[in-house]
Design a protein around this nucleic acid. Structure first.
Lengths: 199, 199
DNA sequence: GTCTATATAACGATAGAC
DNA sequence: GTCTATCGTTATATAGAC
């Protein structure tokens, strides 16, 4: 085999859990996909729950630290927004099921999510807050709370990724159409956030 | 008992399925919540799958027809956007777990969702498309595809509802704080869509 | 480390009395 | 229509040989 067994198991678990969720995932499917016996799952990871926790942790780690690092950088606000949007779209391109997975499992167990965010020291950066408050203070921006500002960006990034099937169904988009649709949003979202649609 | 058994079962099923998803839901929990015996579930609804289908159908019906009706009305675009935003926030106030439920189950079974949308004749209204294309043609709006326009609105409405725990965790919002946060968005979202944050 | 075989528990579903 | 009792299946998990 090319890869170590443990790694093959983990990657298979990642795929199955992200696709089906904790409750929908089957240890048998993970074993099949890893090309090993079911009992090996228990040898490397104690049980379904611990295997899942590893996958969930690693999933959150693919998003949160990168996002916070962008918000905490010393770039101007417009550049930060562009970076956030590109970051989300890049992560999605590599992990199309990750956003829906994290959101769903976070809803199933909010306490685990909260605890994990604390342990990882994930914090909404002051630098970003001040940048927006200053823009408001000098009359450059309309009065908007920094959390509302950020949630608007994240919403416009994540929702189409999570609701891909809804988008494709309502607008009759092929897979290729949908990819184009998403790519277009890398420019569109910053434009909407700062300028809206009215010229 | 105040209500008919079948109705009590259905309401319990609605609650449990919306909270835990199809795979996570337990027939026993539905029975307990309805205050009846497990076998009654099979008497009124044949099995778990059919009970779920009813709940899912009814969930989609609470959102899609109302949304499409607003888009197809003869109001000006700004009023339509406000109506859509208010509609989503009103639905959420009554059914806080519904958005996340529909999105998750749609992802678990896209084909069932597509089929359901077809049967219900849910279609993206021409009136809305023309309204935006006209605004673009006369130079009032920046060049934007109608589907992108709509998805931006829906994204900003739904994502905080689906990701409530993420929002509350990152920004340290109490339940009351979060409700205020959402209420503020009824005005904020149309403003962003049309004008962005720059004054 | 990896396999086969099996234990154990949970869950959906049914039979049958009342 | 509603209950109790139970069946049959499937899933996780473990024991033990190699």
């Amino acid at each position: 085999m090319e890869k170590e067994t443990e790694e093959r198991i983990f990657e298979a678990a990642q795929h199955v859990f992200q696709l089906r969720g904790y409750e929908g995932a089957r240890m048998q499917e993970i074993a099949d996909e890893a090309g090993i016996n079911k009992s090996m799952l228990h040898y490397y990871f104690r049980n379904k729950s611990t295997l899942f926790q590893e996958v969930f942790k690693q999933g959150v780690k693919k998003i949160m630290p990168g996002l916070m690092a962008i918000l905490a950088s010393d770039k101007p606000l417009r550049a930060k927004v562009e970076d956030v949007v590109n970051f989300y779209h890049d992560v999605y391109a590599e992990n199309p099921h990750l956003p829906a997975f994290v959101v769903h499992e976070m809803n199933q167990n909010p306490e685990r999510f909260r605890e994990f965010m604390q342990v990882q020291h994930v914090q909404f950066p002051e630098e970003f807050i001040e940048q927006i408050e200053e823009g408001v203070a000098v009359g450059k921006f309309r009065r908007i709370a920094p959390d509302q500002f950020l949630i608007n960006i994240i919403s416009m990034c994540m929702m189409p990724m999570i609701g891909r099937n809804m988008v494709q169904t309502i607008f009759h988009l092929s897979d290729e159409d949908f990819n184009d649709f998403l790519e277009e949003r890398r420019k569109l979202i910053p434009d909407i956030i700062f300028n809206g649609v009215i010229i």
